[in-house]
């Protein structure tokens, strides 16, 4: 048995991103912390005992978002509350997901970057990133790389993030049509997802994007469902059978398990219902004048 460390973790508050990356290169064991809404719970329960912490909250460049024309670049330290307040029009799917994160206090502190770094299959921010084709910017002293959201997750709480790397931004294409996010939980608010589903309808490219949460080892896309034939030429031909088929394909793409939050069967069933509802809603919103949600 190794004698556990009895010292408090070293704490570094970098002046800028370069300083942060240099520190991380020197101390690959340092754990970056932004909102701390997940990490500090782990620390409190001794599931994590970081030897050092790197405080990202002072880095202005991570706490801003910018309009890049056809996409929004969101700094990894932007809290959910600001995504809800400032980006709901251009990124309605991500904003809807952000609204379901924890409580107001958690949304004030928790960040998209932290959600990604934790890489929980239940992370509320992930499905809309998959559905929208978001890209994740990762920096280190060696340079910067960009990873598509659907290539980021490698397993439960695992991602492509290497030691010394830091998530700096998430670039999300602006909505080119209606988007939906549905999250099933056993409580009406402040609940971890039993399963969730994000859908984006791109009216320009005539394309669907999907994201499944909490129903597999990683957040998933439902590629077969994305390929479903939609009646673009005659939108009124959209019917319940089509929505149901879409729901079946989404459910088939999931690989859920039984746990204390719900059964695998229920998750598949709920995903089918949610996906069918989401498709009906986005189709109606795209083709009915004045239909909001």
């Amino acid at each position: 048995m190794t004698t556990p460390a009895l010292t408090a973790p070293a704490f570094h508050r970098p002046a800028d991103l370069a300083d942060a990356l240099a520190h991380l290169a020197e101390h690959p064991g340092a754990v970056p912390i932004a909102g701390g809404t997940d990490l500090m719970v782990a620390v409190n329960y001794r599931r994590a005992r970081p030897e050092a912490m790197l405080d990202l909250t002072g880095l202005a460049e991570l706490r801003a978002w910018s309009d890049e024309g056809d996409a929004i670049r969101i700094g990894s330290g932007v809290p959910y509350a600001r995504i809800v307040a400032e980006l709901a029009t251009v990124l309605p799917g991500l904003a809807a997901a952000s609204r379901t994160v924890g409580s107001p206090q958690i949304r004030n502190r928790g960040t998209l970057g932290g959600n990604l770094a934790t890489a929980s299959p239940a992370g509320d921010g992930h499905p809309p990133l998959l559905a929208c084709g978001a890209r994740i910017t990762i920096a280190s002293t060696a340079g910067t790389r960009t990873v598509a959201a659907d290539a980021f997750f490698t397993g439960p709480k695992r991602s492509v993030l290497e030691p010394g790397e830091l998530i700096t931004a998430v670039t999300v294409p602006k909505a080119a049509g209606p988007q939906q996010f549905l999250k099933v939980g056993t409580r009406n608010a402040m609940v971890i997802a039993v399963c969730s589903f994000a859908l984006s309808l791109d009216l320009d490219a005539r394309r669907l994007g999907t994201g499944i949460g909490s129903a597999g080892p990683v957040p998933l896309r439902a590629r077969e469902a994305e390929r479903i034939d939609l009646p673009w030429a005659d939108p009124r031909r959209f019917d319940d059978a089509l929505a149901a088929e879409f729901g079946r394909r989404v459910a088939a793409a999931a690989s859920p398990m039984d746990d204390v939050r719900g059964t695998a069967d229920y998750r598949r069933h709920a995903l089918a219902v949610c996906a069918a509802r989401a498709l009906r809603r986005v189709w109606a919103a795209a083709h009915t004048e004045g239909s909001g949600r």
């Binding site: 809807a96 609204r99 379901t100 999250k183 939980g185 608010a189 609940v191 949610c274 509802r277």
Partner: peptide, 11 residues
């Protein structure tokens, strides 16, 4: 039902 989860608009 479903509350903040946006699971139903009456469906």
């Amino acid at each position: 039902p479903g509350g903040t989860g946006n699971t139903t608009h009456g469906e």
